[in-house]
């Protein structure tokens, strides 16, 4: 596998705040790499360094193996990226905004029309950017990203502000890009979005990578028991006493615990013997959210929850 992005001890400090603290990771060709972390964990700053708008304080990174500044500038023409909200000229039309990116990337009007068609903006392409809805702005940003047929696509919180339909569309586009063999680097604070979309993941907290692996590997291992019945605090305490339970926590009134065995009858008996009657007891597959909670010590701020 060829490394598309490699970082080594990449660090960014803003005065006294360390936004990114010596992170090292590798994204290989063809991976859909999820960069997962709560708001303020350093995801956007890392992407800012990769895209050249933020200068690292320390450490280094390589894009497509580039080592010099000149090589890195050339390598950036092989990637497409969006960062936070879409940033375009409000007085220019959607089409003219894409012409700015197309001129830099050496692309033609035909390429512009093709990406406008892909994101469904052809009919509104002659309207000024300032008249677009948030969803349309996001789609224009995606069109600019895809312009030039990039080998590496970097998307920073692509589902931000989108309605469920918009999110579904974004997922479909990401899926299509992945099917074309493109490398995708996707930052998100939405755990379920990353789990559904990505092949690999790095979990970031307070500027540090807590763990990185394939989604398959990271979610493998022990099963998760969900228990409801009686006061959650009391139930949590009881489940916490159970010898086969780990990482016990409360999620929206449900006690969740990692269990060693998939037969829950023993756990049920254990709880009942302590005078608590269970109204719901179920086993589910370990999700990325469970892994994240374990890694961060449970309930870090700002993480998106799984939609019900």
């Amino acid at each position: 596998m060829t490394a598309v992005i490699e970082t080594e001890q990449l660090t960014k400090r803003f005065r006294r705040t360390t936004a990114v603290d010596g992170i090292s990771f590798t994204v290989e060709q063809g991976q859909v790499f999820g960069f997962l972390g709560p708001n303020g964990s350093g995801k956007t700053t890392t992407i800012g360094m990769l895209t050249g708008i933020i200068t690292p304080t320390a450490g280094r990174f390589r894009l497509f193996g580039s080592t010099t500044h000149r090589e890195r500038v050339a390598a950036r023409l092989r990637m497409g990226a969006t960062l936070e909200q879409p940033n375009f000229y409000p007085y220019l039309t959607g089409r003219n905004n894409l012409r700015i990116a197309a001129n830099v990337k050496g692309r033609t009007m035909r390429d512009i029309e093709a990406v406008l068609e892909t994101v469904g903006l052809t009919k509104r392409a002659k309207d000024q950017f300032k008249t677009y809805s948030l969803g349309m702005k996001q789609r224009l940003a995606l069109a600019a990203t895809m312009l030039g047929d990039p080998e590496l696509v970097i998307l920073d919180e692509p589902a931000n502000g989108l309605d469920p339909e918009g999110m579904r569309e974004i997922r479909e586009v990401i899926g299509r890009l992945a099917d074309q063999g493109k490398t995708i680097f996707l930052s998100s604070h939405l755990l379920w979005e990353v789990e559904r979309t990505c092949t690999h993941v790095a979990v970031l907290q307070q500027g540090r990578i807590l763990r990185q692996a394939s989604v398959k590997d990271i979610t493998a291992g022990s099963a998760i028991a969900e228990v409801r019945g009686g006061p959650a605090d009391r139930l949590r305490a009881v489940v916490g006493e159970y010898p086969g339970a780990r990482a016990v926590r409360v999620e929206q009134g449900t006690v969740v615990a990692e269990v060693e065995q998939e037969d829950l009858s023993d756990l049920n008996r254990f709880i009942a013997e302590r005078g608590v009657w269970v109204s719901h007891l179920a086993l589910r597959q370990r999700s990325l959210e469970d892994v994240f909670m374990e890694l961060t010590g449970g309930g870090e701020h700002g993480m998106g929850e799984v939609p019900q």
Binding site: G52, N87, A101, V104
Partner: peptide, 15 residues
């Protein structure tokens, strides 16, 4: 103000 400077760099221009 419009943050288009950063978008230009993201699009492939060097600073």
């Amino acid at each position: 103000t419009w943050r288009t400077a950063r978008q230009n760099v993201i699009d492939g221009l060097s600073k």
